[in-house]
Design a protein around this nucleic acid. Sequence first.
DNA 1: CCCCGAACTTGAACGCGTTCAAGTCGACTG
DNA 2: CAGTCGACTTGAACGCGTTCAAGTTCGGGG
Lengths: 250, 250
Amino acid sequence: MGEPRDSGTGRTGSDDDGVAVARDRVENTTARGDERKALILDTALRLFERDGYEKTTMRAIAKEAGVSVGNAYYYFASKDHLIQAFYDEVSDRHVEQALAAMRPHRGLAPRLSADLHAWIDVAEPYREFAAQFVKNAVDPNSPLSPFSPESKPTRDKVIDVHRRAVLGSTAKIDREIAESLPELLWMHHMAIVLFWVYDRSADARRTRELIDRTTPIVARVIGLSRFKMVRPLFREGEKLIRDFLLPDEQ
Amino acid sequence: MGEPRDSGTGRTGSDDDGVAVARDRVENTTARGDERKALILDTALRLFERDGYEKTTMRAIAKEAGVSVGNAYYYFASKDHLIQAFYDEVSDRHVEQALAAMRPHRGLAPRLSADLHAWIDVAEPYREFAAQFVKNAVDPNSPLSPFSPESKPTRDKVIDVHRRAVLGSTAKIDREIAESLPELLWMHHMAIVLFWVYDRSADARRTRELIDRTTPIVARVIGLSRFKMVRPLFREGEKLIRDFLLPDEQ
DNA sequence: CCCCGAACTTGAACGCGTTCAAGTCGACTG
DNA sequence: CAGTCGACTTGAACGCGTTCAAGTTCGGGG
């Protein structure tokens, strides 16, 4: 998963135009380097939160962190890569909080609801600048897209939470759809995130409402899969998802 | 909601129905001005097609068109606005071609299929740089988003084509969902466009396959709406859409 | 014929993300 | 201790999107 992209010599030979770029700049680190990197990231997130993404310049981040611009670029390949780091952090916190929030519930809808509300809880302080993340999310040329190989580790962690939401519930899931269901739920999750980014209401009230109203529907649709009448429809949908959305899982 | 962002001078006596659009820079135009604007846009699209969006600089566009950089900005408020102009043009051609392509068919699925294939036909030459459009499409802060008020006229034209796809078919549509169906189909359309942007296959073969396989499913789901068993589900979904996706339609 | 003002045109300058040649530093080697 | 090596650090410079003060052009009113 991790690209070494390591070279015994220095980093001079940069004419290999990298499509597959490592997430961050450095692989080799020292204790001091880790500190520095964390310092820059923390400073960046703080400024993003305060001033928004666009208005926060790399020069401002560097200055505030007490380092040079070039130094920030030593640790993060680009300004966008700071977003990736943000996404990683939010995802980790989401995993933890979602698992805790789901625990008391057994029904599928409440568990999904708790799962998604946990995301909002964690990400809400950064809503405004999360728009930038979504923008990247959708650019197929960016290695920062959540669909990209580079994002797979983090994405898989989140999908796994959705898997646990299903497995821990009392819902009887049709075997055929069970396997790709977590990925489907991740799509639902992404749709919610998209709505949330547009949401202007205080405390993301409308997004929370949307979660409360879509999760029962999702649960009910999943439940429907057991009925004969709609079986062919689900089978076709299932195949479609497998063919088009998950083409690389071998 | 409404930003003035106006150049301030008088405007041509156009019948305004209330939507103050600042899509492009100029309102007052002369014949020569229109020519110039078209020249710049054509040059830009040509270079975008040849070199891609990012690699085409405003300086290059200006130079190639034989104008100054500042002049390009007199006609287009930003580089992104050139994309908006592109979207308008593609949409117009899509409307025309889609209506012609649907005409021979009566079934809902074939009509939808023809409708969407027409989009691909028209947009295919620009697939690579269309990624940029999608990127904007998803940024809520940009007036270029297809969800934005500024894009409404163009969006409505496309939605109307989807409406005709339904009305011209033999399908019996449940009354309750009939009204917001065109908007829903537009969402489906946008999803297809998203896939298309990621599609690396020659001639967008996989996207066309996706269209061929999703349109029957869509048609079938719509047909299901008449069955009692799933009525409450549809009713709930319908309300959801009305509350969350179309909040401004009074 | 001159003049006014609105439409148009210009290119230098600004701010920003990003790059890179030229360092500094500290641990380890001989 | 001098020397070496690689991790780290720097800030000037580059290219790009964008702005703007200062023009130029041109139709029409006096």
